[in-house]
């Protein structure tokens, strides 16, 4: 699914090494936590997968696509195989729940009948079927994040990438989100989640990759969070 070899990323404008000597393989259906202090390189790691930034050295393949040598016009097709969730949900405030989710399919020009079926399906998965007419500001934070999850999975991505999805949520709501993730993961979708949530990582006992100062310092199956907060 994801293959990284000797990956290195230097930011041109500052010359800082964001990531270096990254070697990693993530297989289909894995559930991976990405941990580490703020500014360690987790965000760059995610941006590399989405090809928001291009690595300077090494090998990076995602879903069998060579992300480094890929031409600009292939980037959208790479991203169609990836679902992304952010800490701040990033929903469109003037669209309803249904429209926010359908939007992700409309912009890749999916057929209308398929849109209706898939959107209803994913709203069922995240438990928001009855709130499809609501606007984001009528929903709680947890519900908004569930809409974002629905939007991320509506195009059936093989990998779901989540950047601190529970960062703005209370512990109880966070667990609701994790339950949805487990459901999605059980259906075969690979999940990669960057987080600072110690409890979640420790309880779930999934693979944990720790990044510090741009290097992978730990990569454990059934790992623990390993930091104090």
């Amino acid at each position: 699914m994801i293959h990284m070899k000797n990956l290195k990323k230097i930011y041109d404008d500052t010359g800082t090494i964001a990531l270096e000597n990254i070697n990693l393989d993530v297989k289909k259906g894995e559930f991976v936590f990405l941990v580490g202090p703020s500014g360690a390189g987790k965000s760059t790691f995610i941006k590399l997968l989405l090809r928001e930034v291009v690595p300077d050295e090494g090998v990076l393949t995602v879903n069998g696509r060579d992300v480094i040598r890929m031409s600009k016009k292939d980037v959208p097709y790479l991203r169609r195989g990836l679902g992304v969730i952010f800490q701040d949900y990033r929903l469109l405030p003037d669209k309803t729940v249904y429209e926010n989710v359908a939007f992700a399919m409309q912009v890749i020009e999916a057929p209308r009948r398929l849109i209706q079926r898939n959107v209803n399906n994913v709203l069922e998965i995240v438990g928001l079927r009855d709130k499809y007419k609501c606007f984001p500001n009528q929903l709680s934070g947890g519900e908004q994040q569930r809409v974002a999850i629905a939007r991320a999975i509506v195009n059936n991505p093989t990998i779901l990438i989540a950047d601190e999805p529970t960062g703005n949520l209370d512990p109880e709501t966070s667990w609701e989100i994790m339950d949805i993730f487990l459901k999605i993961n059980a259906a075969g979708t690979t999940i990669l989640m960057a987080t600072h949530d110690k409890e979640i990582v420790n309880v779930m006992k999934k693979r944990v990759i720790a990044i510090e100062d741009g290097h992978i310092v730990r990569d454990e199956m059934r790992g623990r969070y390993g930091y104090e907060n």
Partner: peptide
């Protein structure tokens, strides 16, 4: 711009946008 950013993330082509 928010709409455009989301479109980019979910894989809309530049021409579509």
């Amino acid at each position: 711009r928010k709409e455009i950013a989301i479109m980019k993330y979910v894989g809309a082509t530049d021409w579509f946008i």
